[in-house]
């Protein structure tokens, strides 16, 4: 009975929302034109990357903060359980991981570079890096994940700290994360590069510290 009632309510909810979507008025603010007008000052040629790291850089700064916070909580909760040794890996998997990991690293660097002028960027590159790290761990080739050392911890926090340092440095100019147009490209590349490394480590850590 409860199951039926909830399903009926959810269906009514969906119908009402779809009806609202179909009646949606045209947007009051023309955002694509606003983004296009400022593209020349953004230091980046691809609009999505420009919005992520320049026009709405504040969101991205908070986002990497949220990720880091989630990882710290996962570490704190998981630390009380004893770390278990992974099973001895299959030699076929090890060989595959040895071949695939450098290619995944190459793909990640390409994605990071492509983010300046076509779909791509720090998040996609970080996801590929995380997949490479998980593959290496499953093959038993990355022992550092068993007990996170100082280098790993610095790498996890570097993206957020560099982003925060740039934001704090730009406060001198007047506004948070308002890049001077001449420096915008270089600053965004610096932030994106460290973000990629940190995102890859954090995403892999969220998976591996839970496993």
């Amino acid at each position: 009975m409860k199951r039926f009632a909830v399903a009926l309510l959810a269906a009514l909810f969906a119908v009402a929302l779809i009806a609202a979507l179909l009646e949606l008025p045209a947007p009051a603010v023309d955002l694509p034109a606003a983004v296009g007008a400022k593209m020349a000052e953004s230091g980046i040629a691809h609009p999505v990357t420009a919005v992520l790291l320049n026009f709405r850089g504040y969101d991205t700064l908070l986002e990497i903060g949220v990720l880091l916070l989630a990882l710290i909580v996962v570490l704190a909760v998981a630390a009380r359980e004893e770390a278990k040794q992974p099973a001895v890996a299959d030699p076929v998997l090890q060989t595959l991981a040895r071949i695939a990991a450098p290619l995944m690293l190459l793909a990640a660097v390409y994605l990071l570079w492509a983010g300046a002028f076509r779909p791509g960027g720090a998040f996609q590159a970080g996801a590929v890096l995380a997949a490479a790290a998980v593959l290496l761990h499953l093959a038993g080739l990355a022992a550092a994940w068993q007990k996170p050392g100082k280098c790993l911890r610095i790498g996890l926090a570097a993206g957020f700290l560099v982003f925060l340092a740039v934001a704090a440095g730009l406060l001198v100019e007047g506004a948070l994360l308002q890049y001077p147009p001449a420096w915008a490209g270089a600053l965004i590349l610096l932030i994106e590069a460290t973000l990629t490394v940190s995102l890859g480590l954090i995403l892999a850590g969220l998976f591996l510290f839970l496993s």
Binding site: L31, V51, F55, V66, F123
Partner: peptide
């Protein structure tokens, strides 16, 4: 395509 919602969704997926 409007780039602003796309960037918001990219942020949202990671969060």
């Amino acid at each position: 395509p409007d780039p602003v919602p796309q960037a918001m969704v990219l942020t949202g997926i990671v969060v």
